[in-house]
Computed example of a mutant assay.
Amino acid sequence: MTLTDATPATPPAAATPAGRAAPIRTFHRRAGRMGPRHADALDRLWARYGLLVPERPAPLDPAALFGRRAPLVLEIGSGMGDATAEMAAADPGRDYLAVEVHTPGIANLLALIEERGLTNVRVARGDAMELVRGALEPDSLDAVHAFFPDPWPKARHHKRRLIQPAHVALLGSRLSPGGTLHCATDWAEYADAMLATLTADPGLVNAYDGFAPRPAHRPVTKFERRAVRAARPVHDLIFHRR
């Protein structure tokens, strides 16, 4: 099976290949109910706009996936997809590959793609780091967005965090020179850890002195609205590949 094969809307979890240690996931697999709008979008649009990330993905050809050659943005954890759809609509010159595991969120983004007539968005279901590791070539990304990833607040779970040295090195290797790694979080301790980890990576340079001012091009997400209501400051971090 290749990455671009049409797949069922709710494919079974793939088994770990023999002899390979189970990967440490950076996400929770969450169940969720879907209304008629989401179920209809998933049934009709998955084969056209969706792709499954298998355990060992084959190399991905973005030009074949999107039908053109354009700078590619990887969205890790697109949630319900509202921010991805808004950014893609405002940025038609770049293509957006959103990766999510929450089926209702995938379905909502598929519905938004159709409703807004977006041609520059595709949705991948599965582990973003497996996709980056096995399917994306070095220097192939114009930007990586990681907005409000799970903070995994308990110390024993920090190994599951998305922004950690090995992951950052891998993501940086997939960015083209000058490409952008943009993270955001409302978890203060995670923000400090992100800043330290990103600053320590020799392949990246901070676009600002410390945290970045909130960029206007990043849409307000439900997590950000929740943080504002709870009086938690949101931190943006914008780094470029050297």
Rank of each mutant, 00 (worst) to 15 (best):
L3W: 01
T4V: 08
D5Q: 14
T7D: 09
P8Q: 05
A9K: 08
T10L: 14
P11T: 01
A13R: 15
A13P: 04
A14R: 14
T16F: 01
G19R: 14
G19Q: 12
A21C: 06
A22M: 02
P23R: 13
I24D: 11
I24V: 14
I24L: 15
H28A: 12
A31C: 07
M34D: 05
L42I: 08
D43M: 11
A47V: 05
Y49K: 09
L51Q: 03
L52G: 09
V53P: 12
P54L: 04
E55D: 11
P62K: 07
A63E: 02
G67L: 07
G67F: 03
R69V: 00
R69I: 00
R69S: 11
L72I: 02
L72T: 06
L74D: 01
E75M: 02
S78V: 05
S78I: 00
G79S: 11
G79K: 09
T84C: 15
T84S: 13
A88I: 05
A89N: 03
D91P: 07
D91H: 10
H102I: 03
T103V: 13
P104V: 00
P104Y: 00
N108R: 15
L110Y: 12
A111G: 14
I113D: 07
G117H: 06
T119D: 13
T119N: 12
N120W: 02
G126W: 05
A128M: 03
A128D: 03
V132K: 03
V132I: 04
G134M: 08
G134I: 04
L136Y: 02
L136V: 08
L136W: 03
P138H: 08
P138M: 05
S140P: 03
S140V: 02
A143D: 01
H145M: 11
H145Y: 14
A146D: 01
P149I: 05
D150G: 09
D150E: 09
W152T: 12
P153T: 08
H158K: 15
R160L: 02
R161A: 05
I163S: 05
P165F: 00
H167I: 02
A169Q: 13
L170G: 10
L171Q: 06
G172I: 00
L175D: 02
S176D: 03
P177E: 00
L181D: 04
C183H: 09
D186V: 05
E189T: 00
E189W: 00
E189R: 13
Y190H: 10
A191H: 06
A196N: 07
T197H: 07
L198R: 09
T199W: 03
A200V: 05
A200H: 10
P202R: 14
N206P: 13
A207Y: 04
G210C: 08
F211P: 06
A212V: 03
P213K: 01
P213Q: 01
A216L: 08
V220A: 12
T221G: 14
T221P: 15
K222F: 06
K222P: 09
F223G: 06
R225P: 08
R226C: 09
V228W: 12
V228T: 12
V228P: 10
V228E: 13
D236Y: 10
I238R: 10
F239W: 09
F239R: 05
R242S: 10
